[in-house]
Simulated assay, not measured.
Amino acid sequence: MFRIKKILNINVVLAEEDGQEYIVFGKGVGYHQKINNLLPNSSVVKKFIPVNDSRKIEMIQSLNKIPPIYIDITTKIVEYAEKVLRESLLSSVYYSLTDHLYFAVQRYNSHQALGNRIYWEMKTYYPEMFDIGEYGLNVIKETLKISLPKEEAANIAFHIINASTKSSDKVNILDVTQIWNRH
């Protein structure tokens, strides 16, 4: 069981288990909770161990700013991706994708178009991952009632590829990164 150390929002808490601190994600894990409450393992969707204290502080500050709906959106995308890919993704995707989606929506709302220089490559060479990205755009549209640019599907796909535990995807992502850097 986890002992709650800090409630970041209704879906994310900082918790401790066996002397190790975790950032814990789960639907409603922080709802009506108090510091030092015990959190059953069954309510935890993912747990993430920050690499060092400075990274933990950065993540906590970032997650404190992000509305919980973005964690819900990320959870839907990740669960769908894991089902489609038939693999568990690295838990770090919950933080990185949530953070990315939040800022993508902020950019959209402030009319800042960044585009994506690897859109075509992602769509062509990673069609399954790109489809997951498109699924993510649909979740965002249904949840937030906004339509992000289609290029954002490639960005979501990039996060899914990075979180994949399959070694072949890790090797291929280096190719995509090199293509991206050449442009």
Rank of each mutant, 00 (worst) to 15 (best):
I10F: 04
Q33P: 00
H159Y: 12
D175Q: 13
H100K: 02
L148C: 04
I73M: 05
E58D: 14
K46G: 00
G133D: 12
K6F: 08
Y126W: 15
L90R: 13
M59R: 06
T165I: 11
W120G: 09
V171G: 02
I179S: 07
I173N: 13
T124H: 15
N155G: 11
A81I: 12
I35M: 06
T74D: 06
N64C: 07
L114Y: 12
A153H: 07
Y102P: 00
I57M: 10
F48S: 00
G19Y: 05
L14S: 08
L137N: 02
R182L: 14
T75I: 06
T74H: 03
L137K: 09
V12L: 09
T177Q: 11
V84R: 11
I118K: 10
Q61A: 11
L144E: 08
K65S: 10
Q61T: 06
V105F: 01
H111C: 01
I179R: 14
R3E: 13
I146L: 12
E128W: 03
T74A: 03
E16S: 12
A104L: 08
L38C: 01
E17T: 03
S164R: 10
Q61S: 13
I35P: 01
I4V: 15
S110T: 08
L174M: 14
D99N: 14
N11D: 15
F158C: 01
F158A: 09
K150H: 14
I146D: 06
V176A: 14
I35Y: 07
L114G: 10
D175V: 14
M122G: 06
W120N: 13
Y31D: 05
E121V: 11
Y94P: 04
G115A: 06
G19F: 04
N11L: 02
N172T: 01
Y70M: 04
N155I: 03
N64I: 11
G136S: 12
A154R: 10
S110L: 02
N172A: 15
K166P: 00
I140W: 02
S96M: 08
T143N: 08
L137W: 08
A113W: 06
V29R: 02
H183K: 14
V13P: 07
I156P: 02
L137Y: 05
V44L: 03
E82K: 09
N172Q: 14
T75M: 11
I57V: 12
G19P: 05
E87V: 03
K76W: 01
E82N: 10
T75K: 07
H100D: 10
Y126S: 14
L148N: 02
L97H: 05
A163D: 09
R107E: 05
H159V: 11
Y119Q: 13
D18V: 00
V139S: 04
Q20L: 10
A153K: 03
L39F: 06
S167W: 13
I71R: 06
